[in-house]
Computed example of a mutant assay.
Amino acid sequence: MVSPLNAIVSRLRLKHLRLLIALDEQGSLHRAAQQIAISQPGATKALHDIETAFGASLFIRSSQGLQANDLGRCVIRYARLIHSDLAHLREEMVGILEGQGGRLSVGVIMGAVPLLMRALTRLRDVQPALSVEVIEDTSARLLTLLDEGRLDLAICRSSVSRRPDAYDCLTLHDETVDVVAHPTHPLAGKDQVDLAELARHRWVIYPTNMPMRLLLERELAAAGLEFPRYPVETASTFAMFSLLQEDPSLVALMPADAAAFGERFGMLSRLPLTLASRNEPYGVIVRHGMALSPPAQMLLDELRR
Rank of each mutant, 00 (worst) to 15 (best):
S39I: 00
S39K: 07
S39Y: 02
S39R: 03
S39P: 00
Q40S: 09
Q40L: 05
P41G: 02
G42R: 10
G42C: 08
G42A: 13
G42D: 05
A43D: 03
A43M: 02
T44R: 14
T44C: 10
T44S: 12
T44E: 12
K45Y: 08
K45C: 02
K45P: 00
K45T: 01
A46Q: 07
A46V: 04
A46S: 11
A46W: 00
L47Y: 06
L47N: 03
L47I: 05
L47P: 04
L47D: 04
H48T: 06
H48R: 14
H48E: 13
D49S: 05
D49C: 01
D49Y: 11
D49V: 01
I50E: 00
I50F: 01
I50K: 00
E51W: 08
E51M: 05
E51N: 08
E51R: 06
T52H: 09
T52I: 00
T52N: 09
T52C: 01
T52D: 07
T52F: 02
A53W: 05
A53H: 03
F54C: 08
F54N: 06
F54S: 07
G55V: 04
G55Q: 02
A56E: 08
A56W: 00
A56Q: 04
A56I: 00
A56D: 01
S57L: 08
S57I: 01
S57V: 03
S57Y: 01
S57R: 08
S57A: 05
L58E: 04
L58H: 05
L58V: 04
L58D: 08
F59A: 03
F59M: 09
F59I: 03
F59D: 07
I60C: 07
I60N: 11
I60G: 02
R61M: 09
R61T: 01
R61D: 00
R61N: 04
R61F: 10
S62G: 09
S63R: 13
S63L: 11
S63K: 11
S63H: 11
S63M: 04
S63V: 13
Q64E: 12
Q64H: 11
Q64I: 13
Q64T: 13
Q64V: 11
G65A: 14
G65V: 03
G65Y: 05
G65F: 04
G65C: 12
L66V: 00
L66H: 07
Q67P: 07
Q67A: 13
Q67N: 10
Q67G: 10
Q67F: 07
A68Q: 11
A68E: 14
N69I: 07
N69W: 04
N69P: 07
N69M: 06
D70P: 12
D70Y: 14
D70G: 15
D70H: 12
L71M: 15
L71R: 14
L71A: 15
L71Q: 13
L71E: 14
L71D: 15
G72H: 12
G72W: 09
G72N: 08
G72P: 10
G72K: 10
R73I: 12
C74Q: 14
C74D: 15
C74W: 13
C74A: 15
